[in-house]
């Protein structure tokens, strides 16, 4: 089944310098790919670049900032193919940010091919 790993942290709370962190992410991504579990993944620009959009009564409202004003912000994600939650938890625990932030994993909803 497919799982998304949503990577949250307090921006600037990294426990190693940026280059080391990127190197660690490179290793993680390589491992995930090698295991055949990598379906995709990206890092996001800081939350200062976030724009939130909603449509109310047909009118588009644009808000400067993230959807939720929390301390920990979404910083990136992976889409992974795993056999079960336990496998997804194992991968999530290897994501470097799990050491100082939080990784939320959720199964991707499966829709039946439209009969």
């Amino acid at each position: 089944m497919q799982f998304i790993a949503l990577i949250y942290d307090v921006e600037g709370s990294e426990d190693v310098d940026w280059d080391t962190l990127m190197e660690q992410y490179g290793e993680f991504s390589a491992g995930l790919t090698e295991a055949g579990s990598m379906l995709g993944g990206e890092a996001l620009e800081p939350v200062s670049t976030a724009t939130s959009v909603r449509v109310r009564n047909g009118k588009t409202e644009i808000i400067d900032g993230p959807f939720a004003e929390t301390k920990e912000q979404l910083g990136g994600f992976y889409l992974m193919e795993c056999k079960d939650l336990d496998e997804a938890i194992k991968w999530a625990a290897k994501i470097p940010t799990a050491r100082y932030g939080t990784v939320e994993i959720r199964p991707v909803m499966v829709f039946d091919g439209g009969q």
């Binding site: 089944m1 799982f3 795993c82 056999k83 079960d84 939650l85 336990d86 997804a88 959720r106 199964p107």
Partner: peptide, 14 residues
């Protein structure tokens, strides 16, 4: 049912 919790006995170091 929906979170992908496997129905199994963990093995090895798990």
């Amino acid at each position: 049912c929906s979170a992908g919790i496997a129905y199994k006995v963990p093995e090895g170091e798990d």
